[in-house]
């Protein structure tokens, strides 16, 4: 089996489990939604700050949801020796990484579409510059999913993984939050040239974290 088809196999497996268990739609999605509502409570909508800070709030909501998605991605293999099965399946470590990261990315992208609708509706944001917003969101999501998956496997076998993963992931993906927020802000303000610069930074992060994952995932899975 080729590298790519191995990756597709793993991604399809993870997405099939999500489609059947409905944890992503029944738990992670509502979590993202309530975070959006809570931001509005914290920053009184009547003071009109919400439209200005909406890009940052949107990405914080995505970031927090991504922690849940990553935990979930490894929780499905925690029981019944499923991780041992994965280890012994003879698949390439890099391909497993790409498959799992792709599944997380697909879930996050679906979440983002819904949260974006929520932000537009709840925070009174007018959408401009979709030509940058779409690629920026995709690259940021790839970066989040890749970095999250690397740290996810790092903590997979550990008893304290639920508390450890956020501490490991959040500082590491700080550049994604920064760049994605700025890219969205600038795109909404129709300053597309500057928005593209931040989008390129998101691209660099996505590529670097994917490469790190392809190299490191196999050895980390062995030790988990």
């Amino acid at each position: 089996m080729s590298f790519a088809s191995e990756a597709v196999l793993i991604a399809a497996k993870d997405l099939r489990i999500e489609a059947r268990s409905r944890v992503a739609t029944a738990q992670i999605l509502p979590f993202g939604g309530i975070v959006l509502l809570l931001f509005a409570f914290a920053l009184d909508p009547r003071r009109n700050v919400l439209p200005t800070v909406a890009p940052g709030l949107f990405w914080i909501a995505v970031l927090l949801s991504s922690l849940l998605a990553v935990s979930r991605s490894f929780a499905i293999e925690a029981d019944h020796g499923a991780r041992d099965g994965l280890r012994l399946a003879g698949l390439d470590g890099g391909a497993i990484f790409l498959g799992k990261a792709a599944a997380v990315a697909v879930e996050l992208l679906a979440l983002e579409v819904i949260l974006l609708v929520g932000v537009v509706g709840l925070y009174d944001v007018e959408v401009h510059g979709l030509v940058v917003i779409v690629p920026a969101a995709i690259l940021a999501t790839v970066g989040l999913a890749a970095a999250g998956t690397v740290y996810g496997v790092l903590a997979a076998g550990l008893r304290v993984r639920e508390t450890l993963v956020p501490l490991l992931v959040l500082p590491a993906v700080a550049p994604v939050l920064l760049a994605a927020t700025r890219a969205f802000e600038l795109a909404l303000g129709e300053e597309l040239a500057d928005a593209w610069r931040w989008t390129s930074l998101l691209g660099v992060f996505a590529v670097v974290s994917s490469m790190v994952g392809v190299v490191a995932f196999g050895p980390l899975l062995e030790e988990s």
């Binding site: 500082p171 590491a172 700080a174 550049p175 920064l178 760049a179 930074l201 660099v204 992060f205 670097v208 790190v212």
Partner: peptide, 10 residues
């Protein structure tokens, strides 16, 4: 590996 990216973005 993350340090230069953090530094650059900040």
């Amino acid at each position: 590996v993350d340090v230069p990216i953090v530094h650059f973005s900040v």
